[in-house]
Simulated assay, not measured.
Amino acid sequence: MKHKIKRTYRYRLYPNEAQKQELARTFGCSRWVYNWALETKTKAYYQDEESLSFTDLSSRLTSKKKEEETEWLSEVSAVTLQQSLRNLNQAFTNFFEGRTE
């Protein structure tokens, strides 16, 4: 029987000021999208008795980015915003399948 050796690598990043601002903007937008999607999904369920999927939320996010008051969402990568929706979807799946503490 062979034993596998597991290794861990740690990296430390030292972003400059422009990179720090970009990271802060990206994290803030991701947090906003997660909370917006949670509120949207919850309201749809309780008010309209509708269950929104990832695809539904994604198309609503696209529309949301075109609105004047939330056009700042277009300043960051769409990949991180989509990942926030995936994280929310996975959280719901875990909850309803009993994989939470």
Rank of each mutant, 00 (worst) to 15 (best):
L23F: 09
E68V: 12
R86E: 08
W36M: 04
N89A: 12
G98A: 04
P15V: 13
T80E: 05
F96R: 07
K66G: 02
E68F: 10
S59R: 15
S30N: 06
R10C: 04
T62S: 14
E71V: 12
S77M: 00
T55H: 10
K2C: 00
N94W: 04
C29V: 02
V33A: 01
R60Q: 15
T55L: 13
Q90E: 15
T26Q: 07
E17Q: 14
A24C: 01
K64V: 10
F96Y: 15
N89G: 07
M1T: 08
E67H: 03
L81K: 06
M1C: 04
R10W: 01
T42R: 14
E101S: 13
L81Y: 01
N35V: 05
G98T: 06
R86L: 12
A78E: 04
N16D: 13
S74D: 05
L38Q: 10
T80P: 00
F92E: 08
E69Q: 14
I5Q: 10
E67P: 05
R25G: 00
I5S: 05
L61E: 12
C29M: 02
Y11D: 03
L88W: 03
S30R: 11
Q82H: 12
A78G: 06
V76K: 06
E39A: 15
E22Y: 01
T80A: 10
E71D: 09
A78Y: 03
E75D: 12
K4L: 04
Q19F: 02
E49I: 03
R12T: 11
T70H: 08
T55R: 13
L57H: 08
S51L: 12
E69Y: 02
A37K: 04
T40I: 00
Y45M: 11
S74A: 14
S59A: 06
E71L: 07
A18N: 11
K65M: 14
M1A: 09
I5G: 00
F54Q: 10
